[in-house]
């Protein structure tokens, strides 16, 4: 065991931890963006609320969720430790700033990471924490006629405080009662400051992953003349363009809806 400790404490070991947690968080982003695309389903939050409920109540996912929170913390903590160590490696700075050929994002991973960390704290406080702890959060009841597929929605007030959700079928009508996270989303994203902050944070995600995704592969030692270009392609287009754009589109879309008075 002490050998593992020694390995992880070495400079390369710390980088390994950064790379592994980073890549894990990248895979999470794919799942997260995929699920959240349900926000674009114009169904009064039915699918989104069901999805949110599923994520919070399916035990294996819950385990992964806690791994995820741990990853975020470890990634941030090790980022901090490495930054401090790296600063110490050059106690006297240069008078003329380095003009070497290195990308802007690669030189500012710490700054980008800090923005993201701040974002995650706010984001989780607003949605995750409220979802789990806010007793005032409302519920919705979705009644779907199984014959026609038509869904009707109405507010629902649970009989006891312990209620989380229920699915039942009455007379060919499926009744789903879940917590209404969707309303919270719509509410938050009607605030322009909030929307701008989200968009900036997604910019940070884009630049962080532009360097971070391929860098993780380098750290793990997975470079190959044939496959490294593929990694660069995925890192650039999927993680630095498509995913951040989709995420950023959500608050913008909901802000747009709020100005149209659709709700």
């Amino acid at each position: 065991m002490s050998e593992f400790k020694q390995t992880l404490n070495s400079s390369l070991g710390k980088k390994l931890i950064m790379a592994l947690t980073g890549l894990f968080l990248c895979t999470f982003l794919i799942v997260h963006v995929g699920g959240n695309l349900l926000l674009f389903n114009n169904d009064n939050g039915f699918s989104f609320n069901v999805y949110a409920n599923f994520l919070t109540h399916f035990p294996p996912i819950e385990v992964i969720a806690y791994l995820l929170y741990l990853s975020i913390l470890v990634h941030a903590l090790y980022g901090l430790i490495l930054t401090v160590k790296n600063r110490k490696a050059r106690p006297v700075r240069y008078a003329v700033a380095a003009k070497s050929d290195a990308s802007w994002s690669s030189k500012n991973m710490g700054l980008l990471g800090s923005i993201m960390f701040l974002f995650i704290v706010i984001h989780m406080g607003d949605f995750w924490f409220r979802y789990h702890n806010d007793k005032t959060m409302g519920f919705k009841e979705y009644r779907t006629d199984l014959a026609t597929g038509e869904t009707k929605v109405s507010d629902y007030t649970p009989a006891n405080a312990e209620f989380s959700h229920s699915v039942s079928t009455e007379n060919n009508v499926e009744v789903v009662r879940v917590k209404d996270l969707h309303a919270r989303v719509a509410y938050s994203f009607s605030n322009i400051i909030y929307v701008i902050f989200y968009v900036i944070a997604m910019g940070a995600v884009a630049f962080h992953l532009l360097h971070g995704f391929q860098s993780a592969f380098r750290t793990l030692g997975w470079v190959h003349r044939k496959y490294t270009p593929v990694v660069y392609f995925i890192g650039t287009w999927l993680f630095a363009v498509i995913i951040p754009l989709l995420f950023a589109a959500m608050p913008v879309y909901y802000y747009y809806l709020s100005t149209q008075g659709a709700h």
């Binding site: 400079s11 790296n86 490696a89 070497s100 290195a102 990308s103 860098s215 380098r218 750290t219």
Partner: peptide, 21 residues
């Protein structure tokens, strides 16, 4: 690598500045 760490060099963040210079 152990000796490198002992000497007090920083870690690599794959910026590629070394390669460029």
């Amino acid at each position: 690598v152990a000796q490198m760490d002992e000497e007090g060099f920083g870690s690599c963040t794959n910026t590629g500045a070394c390669e460029a210079e």
